[in-house]
Design a protein around this nucleic acid. Structure first.
Length: 825
DNA sequence: GACCTGCTGCGGTGTG
């Protein structure tokens, strides 16, 4: 078939359904037919899926007829749930355009019968996850399986590119590209992305450094509306807090007025509490409102998702578990309780409503404390400006590389030089040095310097011809069980004594419960009975309230974009401009702040000191997000400590930080630039050294190392169904940490742990940028008689999270003592 | 006077 005929048939497919063909879809088809790779960027619900899928089909329609059967198109999705939805969509359209063309899915959910079928004969199109793809690469016959591969599509690339799953995908793509090249062809690769600030980078990472490719932007401009539920009585609204239950009546009102509403919460426990409160207020909603978060059992979540799809649910209280993965939901209204923390996330959530070309997406912010009104005003402006966060791509994570080496050794073996070359074709490893490569190779061959005597760490060995392979079946099996880069806490299953599964909670939470204690989980009050083999047995409790489980999740900081937008709003206020109802509502509070102290703006850093019974407080408001503020606070404490002996307690939030000292400090002198060009506390010279010295970097690295050890295959997670407990995993990873520190200081996985702490947990680059910004801002110093609105939130924060420099140094001392003991005589 | 929190995602063996 020629191209014109193929295009005609696809056109007929659209015409039959009354769909419009958008120019961006044509652009993708033309590029792909010409053998070009690329990135397609468009909002959700704009027809991206069919744009790339029909590109693949048209390539197949135009290909010379062949009798060879095998895999032609590979579709990679980050989520199993999406695999099922995609399978349906692709199968239906393929049946019409390419009769006889087979589409199948392969994820962890794939049945053993389907696996056996696929082992014999792969379908023409396979939908899979990065992990399942990597598993396929670990099979000895991988090269044959992918011999006919023509096109790869990576769905939701923006979700993958910023993390190690994306790096694993890059490595797999490099492998597939190499095979296609060896067979004399080129692999056509297309990525799909939405809500992303750095498109050119996204494309480069997907296609490999320096590789050509097209960027196609979906032309449909989605109208996005962001607004705010303003508290009924703003002057009585709390200055701090995160639950926002005061807003319950307003939220219930919104739910009443619309067919289906998603209520997004920032944490699982918050979702549990909101759901419970909602049911208490509206008992008649039992059965038509539901709860959805990542710790609930899959069966429960499936039921909720199905209810949503059928339009049977009035509202679902959820966390970002509903951000993705459930496509084509008929949702009318989206509410966001508390800060969305970033513009990309907000846009994504807005996109859950009006999910079809031409319809308006709307999200309504529900503040949980007064200052969030400020954030809301900033967010609305940032969305208007489409000021979207960039995703940062990990740079040569060696744990992922080490895992990959074993995978490829299993999947037919490799020669060092050829694989080195191939790996450097993956963007994240483009700067991988010869030494680093040798180190990784040595690490899988001998376990590095310190593990040489243990055969289970001699995972990969060269044969006489110099081809590296895995010498032992058992090692291979163990490796396959550990493929992937997602590392989570050890979880305890929660089950009814009668058998039903409810979900999972963290080991530490259950450990604090006694028999007979109640807790709120899965939307009901449960009574804890006993724990046995990583399973907690419970029964329905009668009446009373219960504790809410806490999960140790990530603590996402406010993004720079959103923080700057909020600061900009305060600048407007100093000029007498109130941008909307949010700013008018918060005006009285800002007026107090301005009267007692001053408003922070992009041009002015506000610093306050306060003397109270607790001691001498210092408040600083850089608006740089909590991660940076932790770094800044520790850095300031350390630098001040060098001028005069003193220790501080520290508190941080997304807007600023507090230092509390027992003794008086002469703050103006501390903040005065010493002389000339000296920028004192705000200096960036010796930043890295000072940060390392001011924080307990060792302890932070050790925590980070847990994940690295697991990905690098040092720590075995246990067999499915009998997971190791947290303590066991922690113990063995900290053992490796200590052994490497003592006997193998050059171990690059240690260096990586430290780098990840600095880059990801402390956001060192953003910290440096913030210091530079602070140098350029005027300092507005105020001694206040009582805590200002901004300061109050920080004082509250300190009660829950006690970080003190004294404690840190105690901990350092303890770690040092332990190390000396471990070193022994 | 005000408070007490921290998301998501995947994968896998055993041969009596």
């Amino acid at each position: 078939m020629n191209r014109r005929e193929a295009a005609r048939q696809v056109g007929a497919f659209y015409a039959k359904r009354g769909w419009q063909v958008f120019p961006f879809q044509r652009a993708v088809w033309q590029a792909a037919l010409a053998g070009e790779s690329g990135l397609l960027h468009a909002t959700t619900g704009s027809g991206k899926t069919f744009a790339v899928w029909f590109a693949a089909l048209q390539r197949a329609m135009c290909a010379p007829p062949t009798r060879k059967r095998g895999l032609r198109v590979l579709w990679i999705t980050p989520m199993r749930a999406l695999a099922a939805d995609t399978l349906r969509a692709l199968t239906e359209s393929a049946a019409e355009l390419m009769p006889g063309w087979t589409v199948d899915a392969r994820t962890g959910d794939t049945s053993s019968a389907a696996r056996a079928r696929q082992a014999k004969h792969l379908p023409d199109t396979l939908i899979t996850t990065p992990e399942s793809l990597t598993l396929m690469l670990s099979k000895a016959d991988a090269a044959t399986q992918f011999a006919l591969l023509d096109m790869v599509i990576i769905d939701e690339w923006h979700e993958l590119m910023g993390n190690k799953r994306g790096v694993q995908t890059q490595l797999a793509l490099a492998r597939l590209r190499r095979w296609a090249h060896q067979a004399g062809g080129t692999l056509v690769v297309w990525g799909l992305s939405a809500t992303l600030g750095n498109l050119p980078r996204a494309k480069e990472v997907l296609l490999g450094p320096g590789m050509p490719g097209a960027t196609v932007e979906g032309s449909i401009r989605k109208d996005i509306l962001v607004d705010t539920l303003i508290p009924a009585n703003p002057s009585r609204f709390p200055w701090a807090g995160h639950l926002g239950i005061q807003m319950l009546p307003a939220v219930i009102g919104e739910i009443e007025r619309h067919a289906t509403t998603l209520v997004f919460c920032n944490t699982r426990s918050q979702a549990e509490l909101w759901y419970q409160n909602m049911l208490e207020a509206r008992p008649d909603w039992a059965g038509i409102i539901a709860l959805h978060h990542g710790s609930l059992d899959k069966e429960v979540r499936d039921w909720v998702e199905l209810g949503l799809k059928k339009g049977e649910l009035k509202a679902v209280v959820c966390t970002s578990s509903l951000d993705l993965g459930v496509d084509f939901l008929p949702v009318e209204r989206v509410l966001q309780i508390g800060s969305a923390k970033g513009i990309a996330r907000l846009l994504q959530r807005a996109g859950r409503s009006g999910h079809a070309p031409g319809r308006v997406s709307r999200v309504t912010l529900v503040p949980t404390h007064s200052l969030e009104l400020l954030e809301a005003a900033g967010a609305i402006q940032a969305v208007k400006d489409r000021d979207i966060e960039a995703r940062h791509v990990p740079e040569k994570p060696l744990d992922v590389l080490v895992q990959h080496l074993v995978t490829i050794a299993l999947g037919g073996g490799f020669r060092s030089e050829a694989l080195f070359d191939e790996v450097r074709g993956a963007w994240s490893y483009r700067h991988l040095t010869e030494e680093e490569w040798q180190w990784a190779l040595d690490f899988v061959a001998r376990g590095g310097q310190s593990l040489t005597v243990y055969p289970e760490y001699r995972r990969v060995l060269p044969d006489e011809e110099g081809v590296y392979r895995v010498p032992d079946v058992a090692l291979g099996r163990r490796h396959r069980m550990g493929i992937g880069t997602i590392v989570s806490e050890a979880m305890i299953q929660v089950k009814y004594q009668s058998g039903g599964r409810i979900g999972t909670v963290e080991e530490g939470f259950i450990a604090r419960l006694n028999k007979g204690d109640n807790f709120l989980f899965g939307g009901r009050i449960l009574e804890f009975i006993r724990v046995h083999e990583m399973t907690a047995y419970v029964k329905r409790a009668t009446g009373a309230k219960g504790a809410v489980p806490r999960w140790q999740g990530g603590k996402m900081p406010l993004s720079s974009e959103l923080a700057h937008a909020a600061l900009a709003q305060m600048q407007l206020v100093t000029e007498g401009v109130y941008s909307g109802p949010e700013m008018l509502a918060i005006a009285p509070l800002l007026e107090i702040q301005a009267r007692w102290s001053a408003l922070p703006t992009p041009a002015r850093t506000v610093i306050e000191s306060l003397h109270s019974r607790e001691g001498h407080h210092l408040f600083v408001y850089p608006f740089a997000g909590r991660a940076v503020h932790i770094g800044l606070a520790s850095l300031f404490a350390y630098r001040i400590g060098r001028m005069q002996p003193i220790t501080f307690s520290i508190a941080v939030n997304d807007y600023g930080f507090e230092l509390l000292a027992p003794d008086n400090v002469d703050w103006p002198t501390v903040f005065a630039p010493a002389h000339g060009r000296d920028v004192g506390l705000f200096g960036t010279d010796r930043l890295l050294e000072d940060v390392m010295a001011s924080l307990n970097a060792t302890e932070m690295s050790q925590r980070r190392f847990r994940e690295i050890a697991r990905i690098a295959g040092l720590v075995f997670q246990g067999y499915p169904g009998q997971p190791k407990s947290n303590r066991q995993i922690q113990a063995s990873s900290s053992l490796f940490f200590e052994v490497f520190r003592k006997h193998d200081a050059g171990n690059l996985l240690l260096t990586q742990a430290q780098r990840e702490v600095l880059e990801q947990e402390l956001e060192l680059n953003r910290l440096r940028a913030t210091l530079e910004e602070l140098q350029g801002r005027a300092v507005s110093y105020h001694e206040t008689k009582r805590a200002t609105p901004f300061g109050f939130a920080l004082m509250v924060e300190r009660f829950r999270e006690k970080l003190s420099t004294e404690k840190l140094s105690d901990r350092v001392a303890r770690v040092l003592r332990e190390l000396e003991k471990a070193a022994g005589p």
